[in-house]
Deep mutational scan, measured.
Amino acid sequence: MLDDRARMEAAKKEKVEQILAEFQLQEEDLKKVMRRMQKEMDRGLRLETHEEASVKMLPTYVRSTPEGSEVGDFLSLDLGGTNFRVMLVKVGEGEEGQWSVKTKHQMYSIPEDAMTGTAEMLFDYISECISDFLDKHQMKHKKLPLGFTFSFPVRHEDIDKGILLNWTKGFKASGAEGNNVVGLLRDAIKRRGDFEMDVVAMVNDTVATMISCYYEDHQCEVGMIVGTGCNACYMEEMQNVELVEGDEGRMCVNTEWGAFGDSGELDEFLLEYDRLVDESSANPGQQLYEKLIGGKYMGELVRLVLLRLVDENLLFHGEASEQLRTRGAFETRFVSQVESDTGDRKQIYNILSTLGLRPSTTDCDIVRRACESVSTRAAHMCSAGLAGVINRMRESRSEDVMRITVGVDGSVYKLHPSFKERFHASVRRLTPSCEITFIESEEGSGRGAALVSAVACKKACMLGQ
């Protein structure tokens, strides 16, 4: 009897593995994704193909990295998701002549009506938060230079001027797309009239992360975010950046690689679950690469896999709870928690219980395998993109072996128990001629924006502006 049951459990697990095998990517698959990513990057950089390229390769006008001589107080704003952060950054000489960066910050959550109302409502709310922060720190009387981390696709015309191309991540505030974001912020500050600010720089969160990590390690020339969304930036040779005049030196390019796949480059790798996630998203047909990796989508992918296993009578005796059938019910943090389970399955059992399920031991094991399959594919897909960037940098610099540091931020990278190990191992397999160091950014977005502002202020002083 026991043997029969054991055989049935083994057969069930084997069927589960057959279904989950769809998520496995072979090294040849990853090399294919990497080569296609490089081709799209090239198209994004070139003037004649930029418009139709899915990977936009947006110039950021960040050319210099901090040298350690900029000092002063800077205000930093960070808008990239449902939370908005205001930070005071003091850049100065530390002990023994070292450079020191001290920060104080406060988080504000953005109400739904500000995210989806008008641009005026959104930026009025942001300036209200700045006003509140300055009151708390008794700094209303000071006109501070301000660095703005704005983590949406922007076409820069200068370091302090950028046109919002399109909202992502659930934002829909009308009247912002096609307009200068810094102008919208300046107008809102003017409307309030109770404080003055000098907006000197606007950067993407990947750029802010790279600059913040450069402060720790001067070989950091790539910034990457794996959180709600997924994106990367890197220092490109100016001669390859056709959208900006000049051939000397390097400029940081914001790849906006989340949109890779929007022209069909990933079609052969998309599964039924991916198509369902895409169809029910706020932007169907867009940001397809990001939807395979980002935390906004990972939990939902797992939920759809679990429903398939229920329908195949391989999980929960073929019956799903009402909660499990509800879109968004299986949160991405559950994926991390399930994979963090120590082996007694308590954590998995508790999560499934909150979803109205009474799982068996085998159910718990199957749910864990589903989570591992989805998150491992995410790590491997992400590795193909980064390997594409790094191999490109090595080739354009004609280096036999390139040493490089990548600064990384984002909740999936930082909080998932195995993502970074799987990701690092896969990147290294795909970049055999590179020695890569990964560092995690601390308060990256805010500190990085302030350091970019410090560079901009120093330049302005040198130019006598």
Rank of each mutant, 00 (worst) to 15 (best):
L2N: 03
D3N: 08
R5V: 08
A6T: 15
R7G: 11
R7S: 14
E9Y: 08
A11H: 12
A11L: 15
K13G: 12
E14Y: 09
E14L: 14
V16L: 13
E17F: 15
Q18R: 10
Q24C: 14
L30W: 10
K31E: 14
K32C: 02
V33N: 06
R36H: 06
R36S: 05
M37S: 02
K39N: 04
K39W: 04
K39H: 02
K39G: 04
M41C: 05
L45I: 10
E48G: 11
E51L: 10
E52R: 10
A53F: 01
L58V: 05
L58Y: 12
Y61C: 06
R63L: 00
S64A: 12
S64P: 00
S64G: 09
G68P: 14
G72T: 00
F74I: 04
F74Y: 02
L75M: 02
L75D: 00
S76G: 05
S76H: 05
N83G: 10
R85V: 04
V86D: 00
G94I: 12
G94Y: 07
E95A: 09
E96H: 13
S100L: 09
S100A: 10
T103P: 02
K104M: 12
M107Y: 13
M107S: 10
Y108L: 03
S109W: 10
I110V: 13
E112W: 13
E112L: 10
A114T: 15
M115Y: 12
M115I: 13
A119L: 12
E120M: 13
M121N: 10
L122D: 12
L122F: 15
F123G: 06
D124R: 03
Y125E: 10
I126F: 08
I130A: 06
S131K: 02
D132Y: 05
F133T: 06
L134M: 10
D135A: 05
K136C: 10
H137Y: 04
M139E: 08
K140D: 04
K140W: 05
H141C: 07
K142A: 15
K142E: 07
L144F: 14
F150L: 14
P153N: 11
V154Q: 11
V154I: 12
R155M: 11
R155G: 15
E157Y: 15
D158I: 12
D160E: 08
G162W: 13
L165G: 12
N166E: 13
T168V: 12
G170T: 14
F171Q: 12
F171G: 10
G175N: 05
G178C: 14
N180K: 03
V182G: 12
L184V: 11
R186L: 04
D187H: 07
A188E: 01
K190D: 01
R192L: 07
G193M: 01
D194E: 14
E196V: 07
V199L: 04
V200N: 07
A201S: 09
T206Y: 02
E216D: 06
E216R: 03
Q219T: 15
G227L: 01
G229C: 14
C230I: 13
N231M: 07
A232R: 00
A232K: 01
E236S: 01
E236C: 00
M238T: 03
V244A: 15
E245A: 01
E245L: 03
E248M: 03
E248A: 07
G249E: 02
M251I: 15
C252I: 09
V253I: 08
W257R: 00
A259W: 12
F260N: 00
G264W: 06
E265G: 02
E265W: 03
D267Y: 06
D267K: 06
D267L: 06
E268S: 11
F269P: 03
L270V: 10
L270D: 08
L271D: 01
L271C: 01
Y273G: 06
Y273R: 05
D274R: 00
S280M: 11
A282C: 15
Q287A: 15
I293R: 10
G294L: 10
K296H: 07
G299V: 05
G299Q: 09
G299P: 07
E300S: 06
L304K: 04
L304N: 14
L307D: 03
R308G: 04
V310D: 07
N313I: 05
L315A: 11
H317A: 09
H317G: 15
H317R: 05
G318E: 03
E319H: 11
A320E: 14
S321R: 12
Q323G: 12
Q323T: 13
Q323E: 11
R325Q: 12
T326D: 10
G328I: 02
A329N: 15
A329V: 12
E331T: 15
V335A: 08
Q337H: 05
S340K: 10
D341H: 04
T342Q: 04
T342C: 04
T342F: 03
G343C: 02
D344A: 02
D344S: 02
D344G: 02
R345A: 06
I351L: 04
I351V: 04
L352V: 03
S353E: 05
T354A: 09
G356A: 02
R358L: 05
S360Y: 01
T362R: 09
D363V: 01
D363M: 02
C364N: 07
D365G: 02
I366C: 04
I366F: 06
V367H: 00
V367R: 00
R368C: 04
R368G: 03
R368A: 11
A370G: 02
C371G: 02
T376G: 08
R377V: 00
R377M: 00
A378D: 02
H380Y: 11
H380A: 12
S383I: 02
A384P: 05
A384R: 00
G385F: 07
G385L: 09
A387C: 08
M393C: 14
M393I: 15
R394H: 03
E395F: 12
R397C: 13
E399R: 10
M402L: 08
R403L: 10
R403V: 09
I404D: 00
V408M: 09
S411F: 07
K414G: 08
H416A: 13
S418C: 11
F419R: 04
K420R: 06
S426L: 07
R428E: 12
R428V: 14
R429F: 12
R429S: 15
T431A: 11
T431V: 12
P432Y: 08
P432A: 12
S433Q: 05
C434F: 10
E435G: 07
E435D: 11
T437A: 08
I439F: 04
S441M: 07
S441L: 08
S441W: 10
E442G: 12
E442I: 05
S445Y: 13
S445C: 12
S445N: 13
G448M: 13
V452I: 10
V452K: 13
S453W: 14
V455R: 09
V455G: 13
A456S: 09
A456N: 07
C457Y: 11
K458C: 10
K458R: 14
A460L: 10
A460I: 05
C461R: 15
M462Q: 08
L463H: 14
L463R: 11
G464W: 11
G464R: 12
